[in-house]
Simulated scan of single mutants.
Amino acid sequence: MELVENTLPADLDTVLDRPLFCFFATASPDGYPRISPLWYLWEDECIWIIADTIEKSYTTRVERTPETAAAIVDFDPTSGRVYHVGMRGRSTIEPLDDARATRLLRRYLGPNREEWDDRFASLDPERWGLIRFEPESVVARDQSFSPSL
């Protein structure tokens, strides 16, 4: 992974460890890009995304064109914080790893699986997998501003 630029005042891993949205970009067969806002886990220098392999089209797009991109933005209008991390790389569809999926979901749903939304409490490995996005290049920028709110 090549870190092309990093102006963040915080460690890159610290920013990516926050439960933010990953805007995941794939290529469509018609030539137009598609972006999906998704939950993610930053682990082993990869972004991991839970993937519905039956009902969502982004898994088919990844299989067809593995060259993908991701953007994560940490934005707080009251403090003026804007941290942007943009990545380009390649993705693969991996079998569901329940331990990794649980670590991912805990970031967003909390530690008690019994309290999770039913859609996420028990993932069927026949339907669900993981997208493994391995960044080849990363640009991390502090684009913060003086807030007026």
Rank of each mutant, 00 (worst) to 15 (best):
Q143P: 07
P9G: 09
V15C: 02
R141E: 06
E136Y: 00
M1T: 04
R103P: 02
R88W: 03
E115H: 13
R64H: 07
T14N: 04
N112G: 00
P135K: 10
W116V: 07
E94G: 01
S122C: 14
E63I: 11
S122W: 00
T102F: 01
Y32K: 13
Y108M: 14
I72T: 04
L38K: 10
A99Q: 10
I131M: 09
S28F: 03
P147D: 06
P111A: 10
R34W: 07
M1S: 11
D13S: 08
A25I: 03
Y108H: 08
W39M: 09
E126T: 08
A69F: 04
D118N: 05
R81I: 15
L123M: 13
L96I: 09
P77D: 08
L149C: 02
L96C: 12
S146N: 14
E134D: 11
D76P: 00
E67T: 09
M87D: 08
R106A: 05
V138T: 15
R132K: 15
T53Y: 02
E115V: 09
R81E: 06
R103F: 00
R18V: 02
L109N: 11
D118E: 06
I131P: 05
T26G: 08
L8D: 05
W116Q: 09
R127D: 10
G86P: 04
A71Y: 00
L38E: 07
R64E: 05
R64A: 00
I49P: 06
I35N: 10
V15P: 01
E2N: 03
S146A: 14
E67W: 05
F21H: 15
T7Y: 01
N6P: 00
T68A: 13
I49A: 02
E63Y: 12
T102V: 13
P111T: 07
L41Y: 06
V15L: 04
P111Q: 11
G129D: 05
V82L: 00
N112E: 14
D74C: 07
D97Y: 03
A70L: 08
D13I: 07
A99E: 03
T92Y: 00
S122D: 14
K56S: 02
E114I: 01
L16V: 11
L16F: 05
A140M: 05
V85N: 06
L16P: 04
I47G: 04
G31R: 12
Y108C: 12
F75H: 13
D74A: 12
D118C: 10
E45W: 06
S57A: 13
L8V: 14
L96R: 00
A27V: 13
R61Y: 08
L3Q: 05
A69K: 12
E2V: 15
S137P: 09
I93H: 03
L109I: 10
R61G: 00
E134I: 04
L105T: 08
Y58A: 06
F21M: 14
R18H: 15
C46Q: 12
S28H: 14
T14E: 08
A69V: 06
A101S: 09
S91H: 08
I72P: 01
